[in-house]
Structure formats: C-alpha cells, structure tokens
Design a protein around this nucleic acid. Structure first.
Length: 430
DNA sequence: TTGTGTTTAAGAGGTG
DNA sequence: CACCTCTTAAACACAA
C-alpha cells in the first residue's frame, strides 16, 4: 500500500534536547522527549529519517491477505496481558520523570509489548485514536485515507495481518465521527478520495493524541447537552465531543480498576472556565464562544503551567501511545523547519514549538515525516492508553511551579495566537 | 474494477 | 437498567 504523493513531503529538523526545567523548554521536552527510556534519544531522529521512503512503505504486506492461521484475524484476545500497562507506563514514567514528577514505582520493562512487531496483539487504541495518531504522524494538515491505512499497517503489526475489515471501520469512524472532517480534494489534485483532518472544533477531543470521548457526569450532563443541542444538534455518535472536552483533563490520573477498561476520574466541570479566565497572558482574541464551548483549552494548560498545576501535563502522553507502537518523538530546534513550508506551516511550527510538539519524529516510522498541525496538537494522547492500563506508579507530589520568563511566555503565546485564526473556522460549525 | 465515503444495524462492554 | 462508546459487518453509491 502506497501513500499518496500528496502525503509525501520533506521536513528538516534537528535534534535538540533541553533538559533544563528552568524554562518553558521543559514543556516542549515533556512531549517531545523520547518516551521510551530503553531507547536512546538520538536513535530515531536522523535527518534522513525525516524524508519519506516510498520503497519502504510500499513494501508493506497487504493487510488484506492474512496468512493462514492468523490469530489476529481469528479472534485472538485483543490485549492479552494488558500490554499497554507496561509500555505506556514506561513512557509515562519517563515523561513524568523528565517533568520533575516523583514516581513511586517503575514498570517492569519485560512486560513491554511492541505493537509494531507483535502481530498477535491488537493495539489498545481505538480507531479514532489510531486515526489521530496517523494524522499526527503526518506532517500535513490533512491526510488521505490511504495514508491512514499505511500508518496503521506500518506501526501496528496486528492490522498488517488482520482481515481488511478494519479498514471499513476506519472509514466508518472517519465518516461517522464528526471529530474528523473531510477536506475535499482540489480539482487539480490527482488521486482518489479526499483528505481528512481533525475538526478544530473537536481538536481538544484528542488529548495527547488519544481520542477522548467520555460520558459527561450526570450532574452536568444536561446543561452541557442543552448548550450543544442549541448550537448544533448532532447524532449520538458525536454528541459527546464537546461534553467530553470539559472532562478530559484529569486533575489526577487514576489508573483503572483491573478489567475495567474505561475507568477514569474526571475533574469537576467548570474548573476549566475559571482557569481560562484567570490567565493574564491569554486575554486577546480568544473567542468567548470557544472558551465557553470548551474547545479551547490551551489557556488552561498555560495557566496550569504557571500555577504549577500538574494536571494538564499528566495528560501529555503523546509518547505513550507512539512509543507503544515503537515510535518516538523528538524535538527539533526552532527555526529549522526546512524549505517548502508555507506561512501557515511556519505558524504551525511556532505553535508546535510552543506546545512541544515540533519535530515529532518516529524512530521506526520508515522515514515519514512527523509534524503536527496546530489544529491537532492541542494536547494529545491519553485516553485510550489510560483506559487500558494499570498504572503502577502514582504521582506523589504536585509538580513544582514552572519558572517562566516573560520571553518564554510571549513566545509561547505568539505561536499560539498566530494559529487562532485557524480555529475561527470552527465558528462555521456552530 | 477498485477505492472511497456514507449509512444502517447489531452486539459487547463500560458508565452513571 | 438505560444509555453510551466502540467495534464490526454489510449494503450502497460514487468517483478515479
């Protein structure tokens, strides 16, 4: 299966690690640092890896041809041994350690399961999450269906050998899940089908890259639903998107009860609004409607940084999901975005750098570039991982307040606010 | 013909 | 127990 040419691009970046916890680079590194402590940080970020290698992707085994006796297609237990427990926790542990959290326990590395090579274990990520990860792995603001297929088959061995029905599920998910937005192909663009991207309106459904759609607490559900229904009635499949956006930021992460796949603890609603409003650095053009909808959460993120609230960063688990797939994220230095970037891309880079998402290179990603469009990268990854894993560690202390210089703050906000115009598009969906 | 996209239906399992 | 999320399957239409 080949990626469409339009999905191929090059990006230049360089590895830069800043171990300092005395600046906002801490925030960047938190998401970008290699999630897998077993791997060296430089192992996956050679510049040549940033260039797409058609041959390698083209050599992927067809997922539509499961071999005889394929356990993946024959109903093997999807997550034997609770595989995400180990790898995700490893990633979390490492990231949290980098972030200055105190972690009480460590996961046994021997339990780690590499979904990239283990064909018998279905990755514990929902299709929405996989789609999101594929989108994130792409350095484009939009991605084709075939590119999503390619990423999944490349990074999830299970699907490489599974019956192709999962592709139907992917398409189903893209179509039915309104968090995904179809971008029609330009008339002069060759190829089949359109492009897909995450609807900015629902971008915060993807926390650390993991699709989060949780049921609204009963006490607050009606209110939220009312406002949602007033604005845009939607199907039951996506009606929870904005509701969930209110609840996906957990004050404290709490591991699920064994055997309980979706056990989570949600913060009290309304706390986000309070955080948003109190940010002294985010008082410009943030659309009130976005804030009220909960579509915009970076302010609260920023406030959390400033206030030392660690709740947000516990959710920044992009490496968790990607590392479990044998992928890694690394950081590139600023102003090295490479040629061919549009102004929008530059803005995206600024945003990414501000969010610590720039230069998301995956070690084993067969040279596909990794860049996250700002629309996608407000928080990334957690839910599905957290749903399926037990966490042998716990956070014993609140993270210390992050020393933040004014320059850091402005740099952070500039990257973000330059992207706010893109979010205005969400208004059309109201 | 094949890939893409939409829609409907059903079932498993989690949540409140 | 009702509702929800997610997955899976299937049918159909459309476009390259």
């Amino acid at each position: 299966m080949m990626l469409h040419p339009e999905d191929q691009d090059s990006v230049s970046g360089s590895v830069h690690f800043d171990d300092s916890l005395t600046s906002l680079h801490w925030l960047q590194n938190f998401s970008i640092l290699s999630a897998n402590p077993e791997r060296t940080p430089s192992s996956g970020c050679h510049p040549q890896h940033l260039f797409y290698n058609k041959n390698q992707l083209g050599g992927t085994d067809s997922p539509s041809s499961p071999p005889a006796g394929d356990t993946a297609a024959a109903g093997m237990p999807q997550t034997p041994g609770n595989p995400t427990t180990s790898c995700s926790s490893l990633a979390n542990s490492y990231a949290l350690q980098q972030a200055g959290h105190y972690i009480t326990t460590q996961t046994n590395p021997s339990e780690e399961i590499d979904y990239k090579t283990n064909r018998h274990v279905k990755p514990p990520y929902s299709y929405a999450t996989l789609i999101c990860m594929a989108m994130q792995a792409s350095n484009k603001t939009k991605i084709t269906l075939s590119a999503i297929y390619s990423w999944i088959t490349e990074n999830c061995c299970y699907y490489r050998y599974a019956e192709p029905s999962w592709q139907n599920s992917i398409r189903h998910n893209l179509s039915l899940n309104k968090c995904f937005m179809k971008v029609p192909r330009q008339k002069d663009e060759p190829g089949k089908g359109g492009f897909w991207q995450i609807d900015p309106q629902y971008a915060d459904m993807f926390v650390n890259g993991v699709f989060k759609r949780r049921r609204m607490p009963a006490t607050n559900f009606n209110t939220q639903r009312q406002s949602k229904m007033l604005s845009s009635p939607s199907s039951s499949y996506d009606s929870q998107c904005n509701q969930t956006s209110q609840q996906m930021r957990m004050v404290h992460f709490q591991g699920p009860v064994p055997g309980n796949k979706r056990k989570q603890v949600f913060p009290k609603r309304g706390s986000k609004l309070a955080r948003v409003s109190k940010s002294p650095l985010l008082t410009t053009d943030i659309k009130t409607s976005d804030i009220l909808r909960g579509d915009f959460d970076l302010a609260s993120v920023f406030d959390d940084v400033l206030s030392g609230n660690d709740s947000t960063f516990e959710d920044l688990d992009i490496n968790t999901a990607l590392s479990s797939l044998g992928c890694e994220m690394e950081q590139s230095s600023q102003n090295q975005h490479g040629p061919g970037y549009s102004n929008e891309d530059e803005q995206a880079c600024a945003y990414l750098e501000a969010n610590g998402m720039m230069g998301c290179n995956m070690e084993d990603f067969h040279h596909q570039q990794v860049q996250v469009h700002p629309q996608y990268c407000e928080g990334m990854f957690t839910d599905q991982i957290h749903q399926h894993q037990q966490h042998p560690w716990e956070i014993k202390e609140e993270v210390q307040a992050i020393p933040l210089t004014l320059d850091h703050g402005y740099g952070f906000c500039e990257g973000f606010f330059s992207e706010m115009q893109l979010w205005e598009r969400a208004e059309s969906y109201l």
